[in-house]
Design a protein around this nucleic acid. Structure first.
Lengths: 424, 424
DNA sequence: ACAGTTTCCCGTAAATGC
DNA sequence: TGCATTTACGGGAAACTG
């Protein structure tokens, strides 16, 4: 589901974690009537890469040769699915480590190749194809960096296999990038980003311009440099929010009840004239993966006062779901009977109307114990670029030797997918 | 730290998890003046076990031969430490699986052997020794079962290597067993069990007898049969509590503020005549790894009423530490201003006196956010066997061939430890 | 010393075997 | 089918390595 924008490539580019199994499937699109003997396909990782071209070298740990078979669920063409493939790093190829040391591991692109030989009418034919670029990681903590690379690659090039892409990555225009970002949210969290949300993101990345659409964003600014004054990059921040939504906020996000991306200035401007107790939900800009609510209170003099709760992160949200936090949140002011300051979701939706679908039922007494629950309180002392374009029927294969032009023009592999736990 | 009672064996018997590294060290206690050439030691898993004797067969995945070296930190005898050893199961030895299928994996005992050959004055000598029985598991969920076996073995036999022990395990007297159980708590959680706590455990296991000391407890009753009406055995229950203490209750346990093992009858008898708001802490008997508090309330008519909160388990305690739960717990009755019903830890210690050392400081406001915390609330509608004996200097070795009786009598290995993440 | 990267391994969930 | 056991792998932390 977290598939990057990929307008021209039918295959999923992927992130593969060492030691974790992945699967890939190859299909032969042309029927070879005379070939029903075993046609063996071999997978090779980083075939033909000059040593030193990449920093790290990997090999396929598990069995990597398998015979093609007639695919049941299709029109009878040959296919083979490799399962339980696993990558391991080659160690201690002394001095062989490339010196493109400027690239981080998630910028290093790899590829998976498929080969098969067969003879037809006494003539030998070699088939070969390879995957789109792959990123290899060793820990899930590198996943966000890997996704950034995959997104950038697919956004900015149509080349099937430019493994040196990140040696000099092109810039993206904000109009391109914003579309991809929204598409990430819609694919991944079920709902994309609206104009206001995207505009806040554009401002965060580019500052205040009349129009962001034409602005160019560098790869570094997108995912490598830290946001000024923060210890994380723009993409690390955004991805932490995507992850928070996916794991803890999905239904509320899909109900469109999380404004999320609003600047503090905008937030105040919006709430300023609303009724006391009006609140909105906003993602933290200062910490990774946090969400807060800000509400407005109006004193007797009519002056608006704004409060924001300390952002809730995944560890707090796994103790108590967000909808329940909103339902139960209490503020104690100087020992006064606590009350819930959250009344209306901006602009004026009564809180329960917006969130009650997602409240968990209160526990009811089951003998012999009294149920207990957690209540969040504060004490206050005064004062897509959708890639579903019909895939080209065939990825152009490397040429086979010999003069069988006609055959070659029709003969190719179709690599369906590489799937790993990181592909969707 | 979780070392079972082991009065006569200097070595730690162990639980080894497949795929997880462990370490072992072997020392040669006799100095061999003429031997400073390389003396190689080889480790073998389950050496000389007739196939079929054990259900599962394992082998050492990593390099298992290493040369001895002069130990620095001692009187110059030879020693060798094997690190990064790893066990893997032999698969598909068709039909070789033993048929002692009555035993569970944690009752299956294994051993690790060490061998060395050398020649002295032209004569060949073989040395061999082996470890105490080992339990091999494949998932940490089997750890409690493994500990039960190790405890029972060490409690009831002095044999160095009786791998068939669990084919017909002897019974233990309650006086033996209770000592070991208390020792588990003192080693593992820093404080053992007192007479009252042990008496409750004895009753749980044996029913009400005048004296439990002479009662015999079967292995099955201790760790295999479920407690009547419960889906877990006595040891699984007790170990879940040990684990809860270790991870979430250590300081409170060590302050002796957790009575813990009290029957509900006893609990009521104790609280009956105490002041309103007196409470005690008790482990759940109905669920694994839970702790609850029970407090007494006295109505206007003087009648005592008892309440127990739904037990807190590790998942709840990782959201909110136990001391904070006690500090902040509130009961709301019919919309009345909530109050904390916990006043005095039994018999009459003011709550804060007992627990304030372990309270976490309230968060204080750090701009721009209002700190928030979680409050546990309930809504009520009306109505040694210490094994530190000095170890024998030497484990008796299997005999070496030849007639070098004098040499053989003095020559042996001393296997210090096998250490794995499960040894302490 | 340090940051980027990998390894280690618990604990949960899913898969497998019996 | 159900239970016992193993495998899988995310996630946090420690170890490694230039």
């Amino acid at each position: 589901e977290k598939q990057p924008c990929m307008p021209t490539h039918p295959q999923k580019p992927l992130i593969i974690k060492t030691g974790v199994q992945f699967t890939t499937k190859v299909r032969l699109l042309v029927k070879l009537p005379e070939i029903d003997y075993q046609l063996k396909v071999k997978t090779t990782f980083d075939k033909d890469l000059p040593p030193g071209r990449v920093n790290r070298q990997f090999f396929i740990l598990t069995n990597n040769t398998k015979a093609m078979d007639i695919e049941e669920s299709s029109n009878g063409c040959l296919s083979v699915e490799f399962r339980h493939l696993q990558l391991k790093e080659k160690k201690y190829i002394n001095g062989a480590k490339g010196n493109e040391g400027l690239l981080s591991v998630t910028e290093e692109l790899h590829s998976l190749s498929f080969e098969a030989q067969f003879t037809i009418q006494g003539l030998a034919i070699d088939l070969e194809m390879c995957s789109l670029p792959l990123v290899v990681i060793s820990n899930v903590s590198q996943l966000p960096g890997g996704w950034a690379s995959v997104m950038w690659y697919n956004l900015l090039t149509d080349e099937a296999r430019n493994l040196g892409f990140f040696a000099n990555p092109p810039r993206a225009s904000w109009s391109q990038l914003s579309e991809v970002l929204s598409w990430q949210f819609s694919t991944f969290a079920g709902r994309g980003l609206n104009k206001e949300q995207l505009s806040m993101l554009g401002e965060k990345l580019l500052g205040q311009h009349a129009s962001h659409s034409d602005c160019q964003i560098s790869w570094s600014k997108f995912s490598k440099e830290n946001i000024p004054g923060k210890p994380f990059s723009f993409w690390m921040w955004l991805d932490s929010i995507l992850d928070l939504i996916k794991k803890h906020l999905l239904p509320v996000w899909n109900d469109n009840h999380i404004m999320g991306f609003v600047s503090k200035e905008m937030e105040r401007a919006l709430l300023k004239d609303r009724e006391s107790g009006t609140f909105l939900l906003r993602f933290s800009e200062s910490h990774l993966g946090g969400i807060t609510f800000t509400w407005v209170e109006r004193g007797y003099n009519g002056e608006a006062k704004f409060n924001s709760v300390e952002p809730y992160t995944k560890s707090r949200l796994s103790a108590l779901p967000f909808a329940d936090i909103i339902r139960d949140y209490k503020v104690i002011s100087n020992g006064v009977v606590p009350g819930n300051p959250l009344k209306f979701l901006y602009p004026d939706i009564p809180k329960d109307e917006a969130f009650s679908r997602h409240y968990n039922i209160h526990p009811s007494k089951v003998d012999p114990y009294i149920p207990s629950m957690l209540i969040p309180i504060s004490e206050m002392r005064d004062h897509s670029s959708n890639p579903d374009a019909t895939p080209p029927p065939c990825q152009s294969p490397p040429m086979t030797p010999g003069e069988f032009d006609i055959l070659n023009q029709n003969l190719c592999f179709d690599m369906d997918t590489i799937s790993s736990p990181y592909s969707e």
